[in-house]
């Protein structure tokens, strides 16, 4: 099963610019999508230092960067990523002839690796 990886920056700029609210979105995402979404926290991702066109708070949904992220924009991005992942997954399933009736594992959130 393809999972969507959400990485929330918990650096100073992100946190004071609304990142704290995004941590609340973790519960919403897990409730809505279960194990299809993996949420991680991260120390400063460094995007805040790139200039004025990049505004905190930052969240990464797979490889896509969300600037000025809100709970709503994060949910939307996750939905889109899941849609894309579902498309890929379906294509894989069609090729292999499997993929139906797969169980949804429990929440995968909590601690995340951030090397």
């Amino acid at each position: 099963m393809n999972q969507v990886h959400v990485t929330i920056c918990t650096g100073t700029a992100c946190y004071v610019m609304g990142g704290a609210d995004l941590l609340g979105a973790v519960d919403i995402l897990l409730e809505k999508y279960g194990g299809r979404v993996v949420c991680e926290g991260s120390t400063c991702l460094g995007y805040c230092k790139l200039g004025k066109q990049h505004k905190a708070p930052f969240v990464k949904v797979n490889d896509r960067l969300l600037a000025q992220a809100t709970v709503e924009s994060l949910e939307k991005a996750v939905e889109e990523a899941l849609g894309a992942a579902a498309g890929d997954g379906q294509a894989d399933a069609d090729r292999s002839g499997a993929g139906k009736g797969e169980g949804v594992p429990g929440p995968a959130c909590g601690e995340a690796d951030n090397g």
């Binding site: 929330i8 918990t10 100073t12 946190y15 704290a20 926290g41 601690e111 995340a112 090397g115």
Partner: peptide, 19 residues
């Protein structure tokens, strides 16, 4: 050459979580 793990279990609206 170590890795950092941020804990999302400790949540506080004013203080970023520990790692």
């Amino acid at each position: 050459k170590k890795s950092i793990r941020v804990s999302l279990k400790v949540r506080d609206l004013t203080i970023p979580p520990p790692a």
